[in-house]
Design a protein around this nucleic acid. Structure first.
Lengths: 203, 203
DNA sequence: TCTTAATTATACTATACAGTGTAATTAAAT
DNA sequence: ATTTAATTACACTGTATAGTATAATTAAGA
């Protein structure tokens, strides 16, 4: 103890390395992303990468956890009786769209999807560290149902239908698109929400 | 010429190698699937693998083309005024489900999805060799609309909604499931079709 | 049975990459 | 200005893999 003398701020270098690593992972995929290439892209020596992250696998893990934590934040949306159904459903959809509507976030989503597909046991364990994905939306549905705005015999099924529409029409197609800036989601979004309300809206 | 004397049947060995290769690709992914491992799994010498397929990349390409050709066959469904809407929509859905309802086909679908995500330019070129994916369904929609059973302002959008529901609720969740034999698609399928008809069915 | 196409076993080349060791250098905090 | 935590440059180890070369072996077709 008594020796808090020196202790420099490593967070900047750490962020630089993460930036470069994400860049290389997006461009080359996990296997072909070499630690040499990551160091070079980050403008940092390879030794520094290892000093900060220990191993390639751990570096990857940090990126995954950061992404999933941010994703969880986005999903936090509360029911608001002042707003229209359509407006609020759009908000849930935009939480998904945010993850893919810049080239960088789209690349990261694509990369993580790949790695999750490569090892689905790992994927399940990792995702399990966060709250259930439909949780927030089901809570919202409950309140909308109490207000008589939604009719549903099974809220989980209803939530799955909603996310099927959003992911099937927006997220997955985007993952296979190279230039996401050219995509215009709005027409499809309106159609999705109209479809959802045709089935579950009361009146 | 005049020497069709010897010429043995290589198709059996070829199929054996493809089987083993698919197995290893599914288990390890493209990068980690070594040609030694593929040869060993197929029960064949590595030299024979190279004699048949020339390179790892070409071996992979053959597997992709085989899969996509089979996929195209499945989608060939004609409108039948004798059958109910629900029954025919189910047929389109089952063409998708067929690709994922055994562990082997699911593994192959997952593997191909991964490789397509890794190089979406390659994916686009490869998929472009086959007819447009919604083509068959749009033809079907036209006839159903002419019979007054479907109302749609834009058949392409309607087709996209249908496939969003099927892929979002069935295909993609299955890709992240390890034991597909435990999945029961029927309840979700019924809900999907009810949702589609709530939006696009006329009365 | 004979011919030879196909296959095998084995050794080999060239290359790439994860991770380590270390001495020298840099720069932040006091 | 001094201290020393952090970083760098660079050489190095061990391992893995795509693809090739070749001589010996196998087995199908005539």
């Amino acid at each position: 103890m008594m020796q808090q003398h020196k202790k420099r701020d490593k967070s900047k270098k750490r962020a630089t390395i993460l930036d470069g690593a994400i860049d290389v992972f997006i461009r080359m995929g996990y296997e072909l992303a070499s630690m040499d290439k990551i160091a070079e892209t980050a403008g940092v020596s390879k030794r520094t990468v290892y000093n900060h992250f220990g191993s390639k696998e751990n570096l990857f893990q940090v990126i995954v956890d950061d992404f999933l934590a941010q994703r969880q934040e986005l999903k936090t949306i509360a029911y608001d009786p002042e707003k229209s159904m359509e407006e609020q459903l759009l908000a849930f959809a935009y939480a998904e769209i945010f993850l893919i509507n810049t080239p960088r976030r789209l690349g990261l989503s694509r990369f993580l999807t790949m790695t999750f597909l490569k090892d689905i046991d790992y994927a399940r364990e990792t995702v399990a560290k966060y709250p259930p994905s439909y949780g927030m939306f089901i809570e919202w549905l409950k309140e909308a149902e109490n207000d008589g705005l939604i009719r549903s015999e099974n809220l989980l099924v209803t939530a799955r239908v909603f996310y099927s529409l959003v992911e099937g029409a927006i997220t997955w197609p985007a993952l296979f698109t190279d230039d996401v800036t050219q995509l215009h989601f709005e027409p499809m979004l309106d159609e999705i929400i109209a479809t959802f309300m045709a089935r579950y809206g009361s009146k």
